[in-house]
Design a protein around this nucleic acid. Structure first.
Length: 442
RNA sequence: UCCGCAGUAGCUCAAUGGCAGAGCAUUCGGCUGUUAACCGAAGGGUUGUAGGUUCGAGUCCUACCUGCGGAGCCA
């Protein structure tokens, strides 16, 4: 096989030439002495044409007996064909079988429908299917675009530790483990407190890594292990990070539109909804959002009334986000329902200088952030009021002792963004191997 | 933790309390342009587990197990 090695996604440039593809048999149809094997190589799929009269008995029988997902090295001539979905077909000339899938134990993921449990139990194989591969490519673009945005806007990446000595916020359920002989360690649930310190060292920073929540949530929006990207900016306030959040999200969506149009097509996402994502994003205060919900309840559009002062529930967030065609930024929640480190609004100290970004189409909160308390005394009293161990937060208080400045940041959950951008039912499809309440296999 | 739904062939699902079924997958046969191809045939079952009601339970009752969806909490 002396033909050049090609990939399916860029096979068009070899039209009329013989090429070698390395991949797997995705599916095969047959019509008497004519075979239609479909090959995939991780970049796409292409249909091969195998007429018995032209390839000879040996090659014909070799291909005819191939089972789904057998690995092959196949050589053939690239031919443009209007009947092919991708525009090209491969007139097979030769094939080398790398490994034959045994027919008494065929590839489990057939092309028919499967249930969630079965697919998740075979996630290591499920990711070979075109839709799942497309989602993982979109995820990769989103992660790359997110880093690219910060890297090209003066941010320095500073990753916080994954093993932490205590609860960052003192609220969420944490995964606990032994740390050598007589200490406990916890998997990080947010790197925020740590990047506040790197922000005061480097100015504009971000972190990007896995985050763990041991909460027993089982909804389409929750994973116990998920990836979060968090910027933190010194000398910045709420307005600054609201502007940052909308520019950041817009950049990400544009990059996906630029690089993944074919994947979005496979996934079945309406691209027009993504093209509508442009700055500025609508901004509403908590009070305005509450008024919206009150009106909606009067009109019978939501089931339960929203109590002023409470955080928004999932159905509330869905209703609010459905009123807009792009992400909506809700700001200035009551301080009482938010974390202890959030700066009070000088105009109304009962409110926090915070924001939630709610994705369109009911995908919920994709970004949460705030301006941080910069006063030593206020932060200390907040820690005490929340019954948090002061000694554990001593280093955090130091940031307010040695050159404290106003600073702000947010965290964005990658999986929820992928789910929103792709239009998926569930975040478990947005990560190669989802960790959920009832599943840690494979 | 609470509320709801489900569990039958490798997979997706049927079966009024009365003989355990179909499609896909697999094997064999047919078909030279198929698009989750199609046509014919074959093999494939401890109906999640344990108990109970009944002449008779996949079906009704109880408990448990597993999974799914939602709430709360969060990104």
């Amino acid at each position: 096989m002396s033909a050049p090695i090609a990939t399916i996604s860029s096979i068009g440039k070899y039209e009329g030439q013989s090429v070698t593809l390395r991949g797997w048999l995705y599916n095969m149809r047959a019509s008497g002495k004519l075979l239609f094997p479909i090959f995939r190589d991780g970049t796409g799929t292409i249909q091969g044409i195998v007429p018995k009269a032209q390839v000879g008995d040996e090659i014909f029988e070799t291909i005819k007996s191939l089972s789904q997902e057998s690995s092959v090295i196949v050589t053939g001539k690239v031919r443009a064909d209007s009947r092919a979905p991708s525009g090209y077909e491969l007139d097979v000339e030769n094939i080398e079988v790398v490994q034959r899938v045994p027919t008494d134990e065929p590839f489990p993921i057939s092309l028919k429908e499967h249930g969630t449990d079965f697919l998740m139990q075979h996630r290591h194989l499920w990711i070979r299917t075109p839709r799942q591969s497309a989602i993982l490519r979109v995820r990769a673009t989103i992660m790359r675009a997110a880093q690219e945005y910060f890297d090209t806007n003066g941010f320095t990446r500073t990753d916080p530790p994954i093993l932490t000595p205590n609860a960052c916020e003192g609220t969420s359920e944490l995964f606990e483990m032994d740390y050598f002989d007589d200490e406990k360690a916890y998997l990080t649930q947010s790197g925020q407190l740590y990047i506040e310190s790197t922000a005061l060292a480097l100015g504009k920073v971000y972190s990007f890594g896995p985050t763990f929540r041991a909460e027993k949530s089982k909804t389409r929006r929750h994973l116990t292990e998920f990836w979060m990207i968090e910027p933190e900016v010194a000398f910045a306030g709420l307005d600054d990070i609201m502007a940052l959040a909308e520019n950041f999200l817009t950049h990400i969506v544009h990059r996906v539109l630029e690089f993944n149009s074919q994947d979005l097509k496979v996934i079945g996402k309406d691209v027009a909804k993504l093209e509508a994502i442009q700055t500025p994003f609508p901004r509403i205060s908590y009070d305005e959002a509450h008024a919206m919900l009150e009106q909606a309840y009067k009109e019978g559009k939501i089931e339960h009334p929203h109590t002023y002062g409470d955080d928004f529930g999932s159905p509330d967030e869905t209703y609010i986000s459905n009123q807009f065609d792009r992400p909506v930024m809700v700001h200035r929640y009551p301080a009482a329902v938010k974390a202890f480190y959030m700066e009070p609004d000088p105009q109304d100290p009962t409110k926090a200088l915070c924001l939630d970004v709610l994705a369109p189409e009911g995908y919920g909160e994709i970004i949460g952030g705030s301006q941080r308390v910069s006063s030593y005394d206020l932060l200390k009293s907040r820690i005490e009021a929340h019954n948090l161990p002061l000694e554990a937060f001593q280093w955090y208080l130091d940031l307010r002792k040695y050159g404290s400045v106003p600073h702000a940041g947010f965290g964005m959950g990658i999986e929820r963004v992928v789910a929103w951008v792709c239009g998926l039912e569930h975040v478990r499809e947005t990560i190669p191997f989802a960790r959920t309440l009832n599943r840690i296999y494979p």
